[in-house]
Amino acid sequence: MAGTIRAKAAIAGDVTTVQVLIHHPMDSGFVKDAAGKVVPAHFIETLVFSHSGKTLFAANWGPAVSKDPYLKFQYKGGAKGDVIDIAWKDNEGQTDKSTVTVS
């Protein structure tokens, strides 16, 4: 899956705020489709933010995270121009990655 990640990272003072929105169904495995058939669980399990190979933040998700998940976190020690690597992996083994530059 490509192009699923939209991210924003901005620094104010010494605090960098990162926001990400991912396009993903996050199916819980409890919902039935129009034909009454259960839609199998399909959700992102891990989402990792890193900079120069060092993990900045790691999210572990279950099926209770909403469809097209949103996440916001903040960290100290960032700098303007830093490139943050973002990568997710779901329970079906699908992945996507992207980068965002701190502005």
Binding site: V15, M26, S28, F30, K54, T55, L56, F57, A58, A59, N60, W61, G62, P63, A64, V65, S66, P69, Y70, L71, K72, F73, Q74, Y75, K76, G77
Partner: peptide
Amino acid sequence: PFKLASYYELPAGVLPTVSNRLK
């Protein structure tokens, strides 16, 4: 049905605040 919704690991330097959207 499954109680745990999300779990975040915070390395040093990350501020202890997280926003997410849950079902």
